[in-house]
Design a protein around this nucleic acid. Structure first.
Lengths: 193, 193, 193, 193
DNA sequence: AATGAATGAGATTTCATTCAT
DNA sequence: TATGAATGAAATCTCATTCAT
């Protein structure tokens, strides 16, 4: 029998934190509320996390790993065609947001206090995309005048912004429409036109 | 202490709030600090604003009006060519962000508590852009398969996201590069390619 | 022409204070609100009253004078019969409360902060009643074993308590019923039985 | 500081609140002072009561229960004679006020902000007394022209008013005198005359 | 006399964190 | 490890009063 209570408390705290952060936003959630929602004593909270930001950080790391894994899997499944890779990567991101809306909103949303947070979170995805753009430019498949760093940033800002907007109210669009729009506006999608 | 000149206090509070919000983010600024920075009693703060969110809202309204005015002026000065209009509008936005970085970050940044705030702020710009895209589609200048609403949203998310990223550290790019990138990735820029 | 503005402000302040105190109770009314209701600057408030308690005190003095005058007039109109005098005095008190419910509630109600306030307000009425009871005892018209001081106090507590209770919701009884009840329970009403 | 024994804090807060409310009156006591007097952190105050009114309400409930219990016990001990019952009930009330002067003053005194509070507190005692009067009327022991509801109210206003006045300065009378006065002026005492 | 913006002491309330059990 | 009562620094907000105009 696996330890029944042990990791239980930690997982319940993470789940409670996730749903509360998504619902109310970082600064409007307090550690006591998280513990209560997790049906755990407040002392237990501090046995597992040094403070509430640590819990948030862990949620973010899990989300980032999840998005990355989804993209990697999509790229591996897409074969060598760049267009298919772009579409696959986008479908992966949209799919992840649809499957884990709270995690997506908490990680990428506008909730964090303090400036300069968005950047780092996105940076990790920007680098591989910039490299991909450079490769495509060298093969003449993307406008060579586009700065690949800036293009990557710009695209990711767009993707994140759209998905957050969509998650506010999913009736705003079908996932397929989102994918179409993002594909069409993707820097690597342009050359096709 | 003698009472300062009439509307002085209110303006000083707005200025103090702006710089503090930009520096530390909404939730890490308190009314006492704003009042102190404005060299005004805490009571004066509450004579002018019911709470710190009201001050923020006023700053946002001023910023939105500023961006809109800059865009309108640019469009009027750009003549009838759609490409020139797109570029002009983008230059106006970049110019505004460069001239009022704190106001831009406070208004569009990721600081507000509670979800669903970004949307409304951006919505007002999304509508005219969607209309422009529709017009260009009917004239065959923009890919007709692009959903104009989603395209407008996507572009604005990109523009805002890039400018916020840039304002975190302006050494990251020259304003001209930003304009080039945004022009190239603009939904209406595509058909020109 | 009498000074038009002069006493105007003071009277409007008193009226505003009366209605606000009656509505919300002493401690939940502030001087700025009174001034606003009186359509007068807050500065004007302090030109007329040293503080908000002074305004209250003036209202109370006016009310006490009003009740006393009503009772005196009733006694004078009642002729020499003690029973008629008792009934007349009670009718005067009930009539005053009915005519000036706010003033009555503010003056006699349970609103004042700090203990020991009720006593003084009532004391002034207790003395003449105690004297009357003594006179009636010496004439054998009131039970001689009743302590006239305590009897007077007790009756007045009853009268005030009933009228406040009635003013909370006047549908609770007809004024005539109140008078009957108070007459029957009056220390001097007893001998009649 | 080591945490004091379990429910200790709550009881100390109630005791501190009682003595402070009695001393200064509701509106002149603040939560900090109560906590300090109870030798407890301010946070502990808010762990136990949502605000100071909640503490007051609990004190009132305890007092009302105490008075009721004292009256019930007295009635049970008084036997079937109505006169003895009346006297017993009055002795119980006077005894309770003498034994718990602070609780009595806080519960029945004129301190509460907002109107309409006294009524409800007294209502609960008014009903049984009204019923008793009705019974006595049907047996011809009380003047049938007296409205039993109003009579009950009137008597209770008298009792409460006298006891509050007495508690302001106990030298004003002996408890025995109070009882005598109240017995003589009781609606059910009258028929004896 | 009238005005009302400005003031700041003080009251209320929140919440991250500790620690004895 | 788990618990949760206790804590107090810090934030929000009120309001009586002043004073330059």
């Amino acid at each position: 029998m696996p330890r029944p209570k042990l990791e239980d408390a930690r997982d319940r705290l993470l789940a409670a934190g996730l749903s509360l952060f998504a619902q109310r936003g970082m600064e409007r959630v307090n550690s006591n509320t998280i513990a209560k929602r997790a049906k755990v004593g407040i002392g237990t909270f501090y046995n597992h996390f040094p403070d509430k930001y640590a819990l948030l950080r862990e949620l973010e790391l899990r989300t980032l790993a999840g998005v990355r894994a989804a993209r990697v899997a999509a790229l591996e499944g897409a074969g060598p065609d760049p267009a298919a890779q772009v579409r696959g990567s986008i479908e992966a991101a949209v799919g992840f947001a649809a499957a884990h809306p709270e995690a997506y909103r908490v990680t990428f949303g506008r909730e964090r206090a303090g400036a300069g947070h968005h950047g780092p979170v996105v940076t990790e995805s920007a680098r591989p995309l910039a490299n991909a753009l450079r490769r495509l430019q060298s093969r003449g498949r993307v406008d060579p005048r586009l700065d690949p760093e800036l293009g990557a940033r710009a695209y990711l800002a767009m993707e994140v912004g759209m998905l957050l907007w969509w998650l506010e109210d999913r009736k705003r669009a079908e996932p397929g429409q989102l994918v179409e729009t993002l594909v069409r506006l993707h820097p690597a999608g342009r050359a096709a036109a």
